[in-house]
Each structure stands twice: as structure tokens, then as C-alpha cells.
């Protein structure tokens, strides 16, 4: 297990190196110059050259890249061209906002998704099951930014019971959480239902019944633990996309999270911030994948890693 984890961490480093290289190359190939954006079109060539020199953009690419890597290894991505703050600081601020909202979204979607998924599986074929399927299909079909706007109109504008923007109080978390979480909860519910039904039809469930195990324990222990792998996989993907931030919903609720930071950095050609964001996303993906793989082993002994292989 430890050997496997170390091996995976080494692979992670290679992946991150690749990501940084590709990002760097793409940013230099892509048209658009940060200095041009910064100074608009008013500046003369002399000023532009001076600023480029100050920012180190006139150095050879290889040198620039090596400098970038040197900093990145210790978490220093330089200062943002536009915000004049360290990129790591900007990322940390945005991350704390995205993560605190993300935690609620995650909690919301897992609790409701699994609750309704299990209920639908147990109620299979009844009107309760059909109702849950209907609403989960609806939940998956509605784009989250649209839900966000509708919720703002209903709860903010008409009922005036919930704030419609920012993240200042507990109550201001409710609308963004619901608008982001609904689609995830619906997906988890459907996934959970399918896998629970599959597990509950297996021979070992009949064995459990023949032992006199109660229906509740059959569902919550024998069923759920077997159905958990695909659900965990999905939750892993979910965490990755939540931690990447949601551009649309963050914009609708005016939340300065990672999604918004990233899009702003791209429109402004803020190369250092873009690099920081890309590396951040890559790190989140790689670590999340590693954790998911390790959790698999805990859940299903048959894929326990590093034992024989």
C-alpha cells in the first residue's frame, strides 16, 4: 500500500511537469500579449518594450520556463501582472471561497443523492420510485446557472427571504449550494439506484436473507457497500469539478471563487495567474484520483492494491 502510494506520487510529479510544459508552450503560442492588454493600445513601442523587460518577457523561452519551474516547485508562481499580488495568495483566497461553498455542495448532493437513490431502489417499481426518477431526470436536465437565476427570482426577489449574491452569512450559501448541488444530487441518486438494484439482486443478498439479516441491514450494509464503488468514482469526479470552481454560478451570485479567477486571468492574459490556476487544477485532479484509488481498496478487497501485483 505504501509502496503503491509512493509510486503514484512519483507519477504525479511527471504528470505535473507535463502539464506545466504544455501550459507554458500554449501560452506562448497563443496570440495576445499581456503587456498589450495591460497598456491598452495607447502605449508606444518603447514603453511596451520597457514593461516587457521588467516582466521578464523578453528573456528566451527556456530561461522563462526554468524560472517558472524553480518558483513553482516551492509554490511561488510570481506576482499577478494585474492584481500586483502573489499568484499563490490570489489562488489561496479564491480556493478558500470555492472550497467552503464546495463543501456544502458536496454534502448536499451526497446526502440527498444517496438518500433518494436508496429509497428508489428499495421502492423499485412503485410510484415513489417513479417520482424520484422523474425529479432526478429533471434535476439533471436543468443547467445550474438557470436554476440559480430562477432561485434568485423566487427566493430573493419575490419572497425576499434569502440573499441573492455574495457569500457573507450562512443563509447566503443556500442558493448557490442548491443551484450547484441539484444536478450532482440527481446524478448520484440515479447512479445509486442502478447500482443498489444490481447489488440487491445478487446471490449474496439471498444468502443474507437466509441467515435472517434484517432488510435494513441488507440494504445499508450488504447492498450499499457493494454499490459504493461507482458512486465513489462519481463523487471523486464531482470533487474535482467542484474544486475547479463554477464560472457560471459564481458569476450569477457574484462569488469571487476559482472559476471566476481563472476566466478573468485568461481574458487578461495574466500568464502567471493562468499558470498558477492550471497547475492548481492539475494537482487537484491528480491527488483526487489517488485518493479515489486508495478508497477503492478499502471498499472492495478484490482490488486492494499492491498486495500481490
Amino acid at each position: 500500500m505504501i509502496k503503491y502510494t509512493i509510486k503514484r506520487l512519483l507519477q504525479t510529479l511527471i504528470v505535473l511537469f507535463g502539464v506545466s510544459l504544455i501550459t507554458f508552450i500554449m501560452l506562448n503560442i497563443a496570440p495576445g500579449d499581456p503587456v498589450g492588454v495591460m497598456l491598452a493600445k495607447r502605449a508606444d513601442q518603447e514603453t511596451i518594450d520597457r514593461v516587457r523587460h521588467e516582466m521578464g518577457l523578453d528573456k528566451p523561452y527556456v530561461e522563462q520556463y526554468i524560472e517558472f519551474i524553480k518558483g513553482a516547485v516551492v509554490g511561488d508562481f510570481g506576482d499577478s501582472y494585474f492584481q500586483h499580488r502573489p499568484v499563490s495568495e490570489i489562488l489561496a483566497d479564491a480556493f478558500s471561497i470555492t472550497a467552503s461553498l464546495g463543501l456544502w455542495v458536496l454534502l448536499f448532493s451526497i446526502v440527498f443523492g444517496i438518500l433518494f437513490g436508496i429509497s428508489a431502489a428499495v421502492l423499485r417499481g412503485t410510484w415513489g420510485d417513479k417520482l424520484i426518477i422523474f425529479f432526478s431526470t429533471l434535476g439533471m436536465a436543468m443547467p445550474s446557472f438557470w436554476i440559480a437565476i430562477i432561485l434568485q427570482i423566487i427566493f430573493g426577489l419575490h419572497l425576499k427571504i434569502l440573499p441573492i449574491s455574495g457569500l457573507y452569512s450562512m443563509s447566503s450559501y443556500i442558493l448557490p449550494t442548491v443551484s450547484l448541488g441539484l444536478i450532482y444530487a440527481a446524478s448520484i441518486a440515479r447512479l445509486c439506484r442502478t447500482n443498489m438494484l444490481d447489488a440487491l439482486n445478487q446471490d449474496y443478498v439471498r444468502t443474507a436473507r437466509s441467515k435472517g439479516v434484517s432488510e435494513f441491514k441488507i440494504v445499508m450494509q450488504h447492498g450499499l457497500k457493494n454499490a459504493a464503488i461507482p458512486i465513489i468514482t462519481y463523487i471523486g469526479i464531482l470533487i474535482k469539478s467542484i474544486l475547479g470552481g463554477s464560472v457560471l454560478v459564481e458569476t450569477v451570485f457574484a462569488i469571487p471563487g476559482l472559476g471566476k479567477t481563472m476566466v478573468d486571468s485568461i481574458t487578461q492574459r495574466d500568464i502567471r495567474l493562468i499558470q498558477g490556476c492550471t497547475i492548481y487544477i492539475a494537482v487537484v485532479f491528480v491527488i483526487a484520483n489517488l485518493i479515489i484509488d486508495l478508497v477503492y481498496g478499502l471498499l472492495d478487497p478484490r482490488i486492494r492494491v499492491g498486495q500481490e501485483a
Partner: peptide, 10 residues
Amino acid sequence: EPMTALNPVF
């Protein structure tokens, strides 16, 4: 079916 009658995760 002894191969499937036991729960694989316990």
C-alpha cells in the same frame, strides 16, 4: 453457486 453466494466485500 458458492462463487456468488458470499458477499465479496466482507
